[in-house]
Protein backbone atom coordinates (compact mmCIF):
# COMPACT_ATOMS: atom_id res chain seq x y z
CA UNK A 1 0.00 0.00 0.00
CA UNK A 2 2.27 2.77 -1.21
CA UNK A 3 0.32 5.86 -0.23
CA UNK A 4 -0.02 4.63 3.32
CA UNK A 5 3.46 3.27 3.71
CA UNK A 6 5.29 6.12 2.07
CA UNK A 7 4.41 8.27 5.04
CA UNK A 8 7.26 10.60 5.66
CA UNK A 9 7.13 9.52 9.21
CA UNK A 10 9.85 11.69 10.52
CA UNK A 11 7.83 13.78 12.79
CA UNK A 12 8.86 17.35 13.03
CA UNK A 13 6.82 18.88 15.76
CA UNK A 14 6.03 22.45 15.15
CA UNK A 15 4.67 24.86 17.64
CA UNK A 16 1.18 23.57 18.22
CA UNK A 17 -0.27 25.79 20.86
CA UNK A 18 -2.51 28.73 20.28
CA UNK A 19 -0.80 31.18 22.56
CA UNK A 20 -2.91 34.23 21.96
CA UNK A 21 -6.06 32.78 23.43
CA UNK A 22 -7.55 33.06 26.90
CA UNK A 23 -8.42 29.38 27.31
CA UNK A 24 -4.83 28.27 26.81
CA UNK A 25 -3.48 30.62 29.48
CA UNK A 26 -6.27 29.74 31.88
CA UNK A 27 -5.28 26.10 31.56
CA UNK A 28 -1.53 26.77 31.88
CA UNK A 29 -2.08 28.74 35.09
CA UNK A 30 -4.46 26.12 36.40
CA UNK A 31 -1.83 23.44 35.91
CA UNK A 32 0.96 25.57 37.38
CA UNK A 33 -1.00 26.57 40.49
CA UNK A 34 -2.27 23.02 40.84
CA UNK A 35 1.20 21.52 40.92
CA UNK A 36 2.36 24.26 43.28
CA UNK A 37 -0.50 23.51 45.65
CA UNK A 38 0.24 19.79 45.62
CA UNK A 39 3.81 20.49 46.68
CA UNK A 40 2.58 22.84 49.39
CA UNK A 41 0.08 20.29 50.61
CA UNK A 42 2.78 17.63 51.03
CA UNK A 43 5.06 20.09 52.78
CA UNK A 44 2.24 21.34 55.00
CA UNK A 45 1.16 17.89 56.11
CA UNK A 46 4.68 16.66 56.85
CA UNK A 47 5.67 19.83 58.71
CA UNK A 48 2.63 19.83 60.95
CA UNK A 49 2.92 16.16 61.73
CA UNK A 50 6.68 16.14 62.36
CA UNK A 51 6.37 19.16 64.63
CA UNK A 52 3.78 17.31 66.66
CA UNK A 53 6.00 14.31 67.34
CA UNK A 54 7.40 15.91 70.47
CA UNK A 55 4.23 17.61 71.53
CA UNK A 56 2.86 21.10 71.99
CA UNK A 57 6.16 22.90 72.60
CA UNK A 58 7.76 21.86 69.36
CA UNK A 59 4.53 22.65 67.47
CA UNK A 60 4.40 26.15 68.88
CA UNK A 61 8.10 26.69 68.22
CA UNK A 62 7.84 25.56 64.61
CA UNK A 63 4.77 27.67 63.93
CA UNK A 64 6.30 30.74 65.51
CA UNK A 65 9.41 30.24 63.45
CA UNK A 66 7.39 29.86 60.24
CA UNK A 67 4.84 32.57 60.83
CA UNK A 68 7.23 35.25 61.89
CA UNK A 69 9.70 34.66 59.08
CA UNK A 70 9.36 37.77 56.83
CA UNK A 71 10.22 35.90 53.60
CA UNK A 72 7.67 33.19 54.26
CA UNK A 73 5.26 35.90 55.30
CA UNK A 74 5.32 37.36 51.79
CA UNK A 75 5.47 34.00 50.10
CA UNK A 76 2.20 33.22 51.76
CA UNK A 77 0.64 35.87 49.55
CA UNK A 78 1.65 33.79 46.55
CA UNK A 79 0.03 30.78 48.15
CA UNK A 80 -3.18 32.69 48.70
CA UNK A 81 -3.07 33.88 45.10
CA UNK A 82 -2.64 30.35 43.84
CA UNK A 83 -5.52 29.07 45.94
CA UNK A 84 -7.79 31.88 44.76
CA UNK A 85 -6.88 31.34 41.09
CA UNK A 86 -7.15 27.59 41.18
CA UNK A 87 -10.43 27.81 43.01
CA UNK A 88 -12.06 30.42 40.81
CA UNK A 89 -10.90 28.88 37.54
CA UNK A 90 -12.01 25.57 39.03
CA UNK A 91 -15.48 27.03 39.43
CA UNK A 92 -15.33 28.07 35.78
CA UNK A 93 -14.41 24.53 34.78
CA UNK A 94 -17.18 23.10 36.94
CA UNK A 95 -19.62 25.35 35.11
CA UNK A 96 -18.53 23.82 31.81
CA UNK A 97 -18.86 20.36 33.31
CA UNK A 98 -22.50 20.97 34.06
CA UNK A 99 -22.94 22.38 30.57
CA UNK A 100 -22.95 26.12 31.21
CA UNK A 101 -21.02 28.92 29.58
CA UNK A 102 -19.36 27.46 26.49
CA UNK A 103 -20.15 30.47 24.39
CA UNK A 104 -19.03 32.86 27.12
CA UNK A 105 -15.89 31.11 28.33
CA UNK A 106 -13.68 34.16 27.90
CA UNK A 107 -16.08 36.49 29.65
CA UNK A 108 -16.44 34.04 32.53
CA UNK A 109 -12.67 33.86 32.81
CA UNK A 110 -12.26 37.61 33.02
CA UNK A 111 -15.12 37.93 35.50
CA UNK A 112 -13.45 35.30 37.67
CA UNK A 113 -10.16 37.13 37.38
CA UNK A 114 -11.67 40.42 38.49
CA UNK A 115 -13.27 38.73 41.46
CA UNK A 116 -10.01 36.94 42.24
CA UNK A 117 -8.03 40.17 42.04
CA UNK A 118 -10.39 41.85 44.49
CA UNK A 119 -10.09 38.92 46.88
CA UNK A 120 -6.33 38.78 46.63
CA UNK A 121 -5.81 42.51 47.04
CA UNK A 122 -7.99 42.56 50.13
CA UNK A 123 -5.90 39.74 51.58
CA UNK A 124 -2.75 41.70 50.76
CA UNK A 125 -4.14 44.81 52.42
CA UNK A 126 -5.16 42.90 55.55
CA UNK A 127 -1.84 41.07 55.66
CA UNK A 128 0.38 44.11 55.21
CA UNK A 129 -1.54 46.41 57.52
Amino acid sequence: MPSREMVASQRYKTNSQVWNAVGMWAWMLHRATGIGLVLYLILHATLISTSLISGAQSFNATLTMLMTNPVLHYMELLLVGAVIYHGLNGVRLLLFDIGIGFSKQKEIFWAAMVLGAIMWISVVVVKLS
Binding site: L41, I42, A45, T46, I48, S49, L52, G55
Partner: peptide, 13 residues
Amino acid sequence: ALFGIGVYSIIQF
Protein backbone atom coordinates in the same frame (compact mmCIF):
# COMPACT_ATOMS: atom_id res chain seq x y z
CA ALA B 1 0.87 7.62 53.86
CA LEU B 2 0.09 11.33 53.86
CA PHE B 3 -3.45 10.61 54.96
CA GLY B 4 -2.03 8.56 57.83
CA ILE B 5 0.30 11.37 58.81
CA GLY B 6 -2.58 13.80 58.69
CA VAL B 7 -4.82 11.65 60.81
CA TYR B 8 -1.95 11.18 63.25
CA SER B 9 -1.65 14.98 63.53
CA ILE B 10 -5.36 15.38 64.17
CA ILE B 11 -5.23 12.71 66.86
CA GLN B 12 -2.29 14.51 68.48
CA PHE B 13 -4.48 17.58 68.86
